[in-house]
């Protein structure tokens, strides 16, 4: 008896090993996909909170790539929405007809330098002439108009921001006939004024302003919302104070828009006004 106890004590690790290894091997061998699934589900139940946190961290690390995918998706959507046809076709028809030349082409770019506090502000984008950018193209954000490309180098381009004393753009009030010209008054990066407003009939605070008769920007692209309507008349016109839709202080991804018919329209325009 004493010998047996001694024997057991001496080889207990062997017994423990055989027992545990058998359990583990049984689990390995007998694991059908259903059992695996049950086990998996049970494990997930137990470690759920931890795994959730891990998933959160992982999704954070993938934000960069996800962002790129979203930008690309947005670009193609933009392409569909703000591409009115030159003929009398609807947007849908336009897409069915692959022979048609798209009016506006969009490219993704990133802002690498940006100012908002100077009287004349500029942005620098990470795309240049190598990506077929050239002076005169428009720059948009997903919220609204950003500016116009002024200079290009092979890899970068300088954009005249909407926040520039020389920048002006003709605008139309959403759905209405009220038009005007947008300027930046140089005060705040979210504020601008619209001059040459002929009437205030349908104007109310909160209305959206769109691009209008522009060769550079797609028509009816949002720019700003009306924030203040003053009744004062200046040279026979009213003036509106507006809130710009683009958050210039935190611009990151933008689109550079190119009007494929720009040269044609420009030469037509120039032919009547020498």
């Amino acid at each position: 008896m004493k010998n047996l106890v001694e024997f057991l004590r001496r080889y207990i690790h062997v017994f423990v090993f055989v027992a545990l290894e058998s359990i583990a091997l049984y689990a390995v061998v007998s694991s059908t996909s259903y059992k695996q699934w049950r086990w998996n589900a049970w494990g997930k139940e137990l470690c759920g909170p931890l795994l959730k946190r891990q998933a959160k961290i992982r999704s954070y690390m993938h934000l960069n790539r996800d962002n790129q995918i979203l930008q690309e998706a947005n670009r193609s959507l933009l392409h569909r929405i703000y591409n009115v046809d030159v003929g009398e076709k609807t947007v849908k028809d336009y897409y069915l007809d692959s022979l048609h030349h798209p009016v506006f082409a969009y490219k993704i770019a990133h802002v690498i330098e940006n100012t908002t506090n100077l009287p004349d502000n500029y942005l620098i984008l990470d795309k240049g002439s190598n990506d077929s950018l050239r002076p005169g193209l428009g720059v948009l954000s997903e919220h609204g108009v950003v500016g116009i490309v002024k200079e290009v180098s092979p890899h970068f381009s300088v954009v005249m921001s909407l926040l520039h004393s020389k920048f002006n753009l003709s605008v139309i009030l959403k759905g209405g006939v009220v038009t005007g010209v947008l300027y930046w008054d140089g005060h705040h990066h979210r504020q601008a004024v619209v001059r040459n407003v002929s009437s205030l009939d349908d104007v109310s605070v909160g209305d959206t302003l769109w691009t209008h008769h522009s060769l550079i920007f797609p028509p009816q692209y949002p720019i700003a919302t009306v924030s203040e309507v003053s009744k004062e008349v200046e040279d026979g016109f009213y003036t509106l104070k507006v809130r710009l839709l683009t958050p210039f202080d935190r611009l990151s991804a933008v689109w550079v828009v190119e009007n494929n018919f720009y040269d044609e329209l420009k030469s037509l325009k120039d032919s009547i006004a020498p």
């Binding site: 690790h13 090993f17 545990l20 290894e21 359990i23 583990a24 091997l25 049984y26 689990a27 390995v28 694991s31 059992k35 695996q36 086990w39 998996n40 494990g43 997930k44 137990l46 470690c47 795994l51």
Partner: peptide, 19 residues
């Protein structure tokens, strides 16, 4: 194993190694 969702693979290997 519990986290990896496979039954017994790591347990069997590590038990053997420990032995």
């Amino acid at each position: 194993d519990l986290f990896s969702g496979v039954m017994g693979v790591h347990a069997a290997s590590l038990t053997f190694v420990a032995f």
